[in-house]
Design a binder for these strands. Structure first.
Length: 895
RNA sequence: GGGCGAUUAGCUCAGACGGUUAGAGCGUCUGCUUUACACGCAGAAGGUCAGAGGUUCGAGUCCUCUAUCGCCCACCA
């Protein structure tokens, strides 16, 4: 009765809530997350993409962590010093907006507090809430080394930022210039090209008449933004456009304001588009800016930084762009200068952060000159130093690198890394230094003013792979862990982040920052729509962890996961994953309850002798083949496939068959029996726990610990599953014979069960059966018992001619080898039985004929590989033998 | 304007290198309180692999074109 008692000690269902926190602390307290630097071994390093310090963990983070953590745990179990380095990002605009909103609730603006006061408030916020994202990360089970956690504004990463800025400046790769740049009037800052998202919008195309100054007519220009004519400084036509060749050099009068504008020829004007004449507004359009530069047109800015019009707009000063548009269109109509208006769809740039319309304006900003930096970053992927998975993204990467544009890195914000540039108040000297200067190097003046701007958040992110390891200092971490192994992140930040890390890593370290880039897709809602707060369709990972457990969430996120592909998440996946964890729990419960009585047989559980029993040889063979598959899938980054292989083996071979067959042996044998399945039950379960650990860390560790308490100690066992060795295949244990024998047992059982269902024979009712296999086969001893128990057969008689004993009141089940005959007095209709067998014969025939045709095709025989031909031949042989048996039985039924 | 992805069972998705009768989970249907598990067990039904051509002894898999959906890039006045 010990069995009952011990079972009651273990909950019937796996309860993640009672396990996860305890297990995480166990790992954490055990120091397993901190790798030991061992110069005899290659480390495995993953730097976590740092979430926003003010952020909440969302599904994207959960997927990132699930994938990264499984890689890290796998490598850790392979004995590699594995570093998973966590951190958080100050997230410039995002954080500033959050804190400003909070202050606004108290009726305070950032300007009330001033720069220092405001930054103090943000720091208070960070101190108070900044650890929340870490706590959330822990709940997923991330095996991060928290002793190395880094924040982008920490001293180390900040020093990396300054050092990089100064180095690039001194190389001439950072410059300041008055250029046209994306400007968000709401955020009141410049943006990089990547931070502008274009959306198709329905607007109008306005055709406006610009009268020639000499009174000889008019040029008609088309524009989607009539209000920008206030900043026009020219009209351009294509020099090759015969319609306008006479006009070049002449002037037109700007409507509404009356300025005179020159007409210039420029190749940027498309011949076929609009009217062929383009109004040039260098101050508010990037293309026009370039046309202006080429043709010596001046730039007039008509917009204030808040998006309203300035004094250059004359009577329209103070109006918003939208108001000005309305008023100008009215004015044009009144003046008779509006030729016509057509509806027109075009794309409009919006701020990635606040979604306001972005205005291109000319401001003084800092830029990184990208072209020379991009070249080596491109080459590193082209020559294979860094591999991008899936490789189709390499093309996208090349395309971006090949068409790289300079990167605007200054932001008119307060929260972030302040640009390390000072201006001398007395002599205009520009001082760019890593350490704050105290006096001007040129004139000695102490009156220095630091540049007001901060750097784009992604500037510090770009340094993350080395700044977190100590750079610019020459640290042991940097020496050992750089370059990192895998950068795992979403394809949506390939340019924002990955590309810039490549650039900066190579620039600062002389080597690309990672060997492999693994890009995952988006997690979509159950309808296949991208999750977003505004749409209200977000699934909250923390809520799902509460409901299903962290293991289930992780497992659900990696089901069928293939790199670069988007995936939907739904309840069904979570339920299936939770059910799987519970299945594992209960299989373990069963094994453990039997271990109580294990006795001497168990001493070899952790290092079982070569199995003698056919069932043990089978399960060990299968285990090792699966370990081989899993290892290969993991190497190839096919994590979804690896997971599926473990899932299927555990559930549909180990639980469904091996455990069920072992139950019979356990009941029949006494505990000291040399052929007890107990060591193998324990062993295979333990190996499954190991294989599964990277995918379901909590439940596997919990079971592993409990298992460890119930078996004789393995002298070589580690203290925790997290550092146990990952199973590798031992080909010596592959056993073809046992595999085909047990496959036959399963076939017999399945065909009898199938027949029982067909004839509606009650589940617990025992039936008689005659099993007729060629040779002595598998039907002896334990396998006969297995068949009897699993198919509920009693008595089972065994013959050896393989032909069966068909009769008018029996059913004949023709197997791939042999026949099962089941007498069913009164239940069998002879005609129906004949019909059934004829159907089976026809089925076999279809395949037989196809194979026969293939094997008589001389082209197939001459061109297909020998092993394929051989295999097809064997199949045909067995098909024919089977067909023969069916016909034989049919003959006997008729005769 | 360029580029990419998806299209396989009712639903969600796997199917490296071309080679058994194309798989899983969920759902559906039929039975089961079989002392590990009803978050379970046994059984079943369900697919012209989007369409059309091609390469090949052989195509869900490779090539070309088409369709539908989705995404990315681009100085679309």
């Amino acid at each position: 009765m010990t069995q009952i008692k011990s079972l009651s000690e273990i909950p019937r269902a796996y309860e993640p809530q009672t396990v996860e926190r305890r297990i995480y602390e166990f790992w954490s307290d055990g120091g397993y997350f901190t790798p030991e630097i061992d110069h005899t071994r290659e480390p495995f390093t993953v730097i976590m993409p740092p979430p926003n310090v003010t952020g909440e963990l969302h599904m994207g983070h959960a997927l990132t962590i699930a994938l990264e953590d499984l890689m890290v745990r796998w490598h850790r179990m392979k004995g590699e010093p594995a570093l998973y380095l966590p951190g958080s990002d100050h997230a410039g605009i995002a954080t500033q907006v959050v804190v400003e909103r909070m202050l606004a609730g108290e009726g305070v603006s950032r300007h009330d507090l001033g720069r220092d006061g405001f930054n103090d408030s943000v720091w208070q916020w960070v101190d108070r809430y900044g650890s929340r994202i870490y706590e959330q990360t822990k709940r997923i089970g991330a095996s991060c080394d928290w002793t190395r956690a880094a924040f982008t504004l920490d001293e180390g990463p900040s020093s990396a930022v300054r050092t990089t800025f100064v180095n690039l400046y001194k190389k001439g790769l950072i410059y300041r210039g008055e250029r046209i740049t994306n400007w968000c009037p709401r955020c009141r800052t410049a943006l990089s090209d990547l931070e502008v998202k274009y959306q198709e919008e329905n607007g109008n195309l306005y055709y406006i008449r610009y009268l020639l100054e000499d009174g000889s007519g008019a040029l008609i220009v088309a524009t989607t933004r009539p209000e920008t004519l206030l900043g026009d400084t020219g009209v351009a036509v294509n020099s090759d456009d015969e319609r306008y060749t006479d006009c070049i050099g002449k002037s037109v009068v700007l409507p509404a304001l009356g300025r005179t504008l020159p007409i210039v020829g420029d190749e940027a004007v498309e011949l076929g588009f609009g009217t062929g004449a383009l109004k040039v507004t260098p101050g508010h359009d990037a293309t026009d800016f370039e046309i202006g530069q080429r043709n010596g047109l001046q730039s007039v800015s008509v917009m204030n930084l808040d998006g309203t019009l300035n004094a250059n707009a004359g009577p329209y000063e103070g109006q918003s762009m939208a108001e000005a548009r309305k008023n100008i269109v009215e004015r044009l109509e009144a003046d008779g200068l509006l030729e016509r208006v057509e509806p027109y769809q075009h794309s409009v740039g919006h701020c990635d952060r606040c979604d306001d319309v972005v205005e291109p304006i000319i401001t003084n900003q800092w830029y990184v000159k990208m072209e020379p930096l991009a070249k080596p970053a491109r080459d590193a992927v082209a020559n294979g130093d860094t591999r991008i998975i899936p490789d189709r993204f390499a093309k996208v990467y090349f395309n971006w690198m090949d068409n790289i544009r300079d990167w605007c890195i200054s932001r008119q914000l307060w929260w972030g890394h302040r640009i390390p540039v000072w201006y001398c108040d007395d002599c205009d000297e520009v001082i760019v230094e890593i350490d704050d200067p105290t006096k001007c190097g040129a004139c000695g003046s102490g009156a220095l003013t630091q540049d007001d701007d901060v750097l784009d958040t992604w500037f510090s992110s770009g340094l993350w792979t080395h700044s977190t390891l100590g750079w610019p200092n020459d640290t042991e971490d940097l020496d050992y862990f750089y370059p990192t192994s895998v950068m795992e992140t979403g394809y949506d930040i390939l340019f924002f982040w990955v590309a810039r890390m490549m650039v900066m890593g190579i620039e600062n370290m002389g080597a690309p920052p990672f060997h492999t880039v693994y890009l995952h897709g988006l997690v979509l809602d159950p309808e296949g729509v991208k999750m977003s707060k505004t749409r209200g369709n977000v699934l909250d990972p923390l809520q799902l962890i509460d409901l299903y457990g962290a293991d289930a969430l992780r497992f659900a996120l990696t089901i069928g996961n293939s790199p670069g592909n988007d995936q939907r998440l739904n309840e069904q996946k979570l339920e299936a994953s939770r059910n799987f964890a519970n299945k594992l729990w209960n299989a373990a419960r069963f094994v453990m309850s039997n271990l109580e009585d294990g006795g001497t047989a168990l001493e070899c559980w952790y290092n079982p002798k070569l199995p003698a029993h056919r069932q043990d040889r089978w399960i060990m063979s299968r285990l090792n083949r699966v370990a081989d598959d899993v290892g290969r899938y993991m190497e190839e980054y096919q994590f979804g496939e690896a997971q599926r292989a473990i899932h299927d083996f555990f559930w549909h071979e180990f639980a469904d068959w091996y455990i069920e067959m072992a139950k019979i042996r356990l009941r029949a044998n006494d505990a000291s029996d040399a052929e007890s399945p107990l060591p193998y039950l324990a062993y295979v379960l333990e190996r499954v726990l190991r294989m599964l650990h990277p995918f379901m860390p909590f439940v596997t560790e919990e079971i592993w610990q409990r298992l460890g308490e119930r078996v004789p100690a393995d002298p070589d066992a580690p203290a925790a599953l997290i550092i146990a060795e990952y199973p590798e295949a031992d080909a010596a244990l592959y056993d073809d014979e046992a595999e085909s024998d047990i496959a036959l047992v399963m076939e017999i059982v399945r065909s009898i069960r199938n027949m029982r269902a067909e004839f509606r024979i009650q589940q617990h009712q025992r039936i008689e059966a005659a099993l007729d296999l060629p040779g002595d086969g598998v039907a002896a001893g334990a396998e006969a018992d297995a068949i009897k128990m699993l198919a509920r057969v009693e008595p089972l008689t065994i013959g050896a001619d393989g032909e069966g004993t068909a009769s008018a009141d029996s059913v004949s089940l023709v197997l791939s080898k042999g026949v099962v005959t089941i007498p069913l007095r009164g239940l069998v209709d002879l005609d129906k039985e004949r019909e059934r067998l004829q159907g089976e014969a026809a089925d076999i025939d279809r395949n037989r004929e196809r194979l026969a045709a293939r094997l008589s095709d001389s082209r197939f025989l001459s061109r297909a590989p020998a092993e394929v031909i051989e295999r097809e031949r064997e199949r045909l042989d067995s098909m024919e033998a089977r067909k023969g048996r069916v016909e034989d039985i049919l003959g006997r039924l008729s005769g």
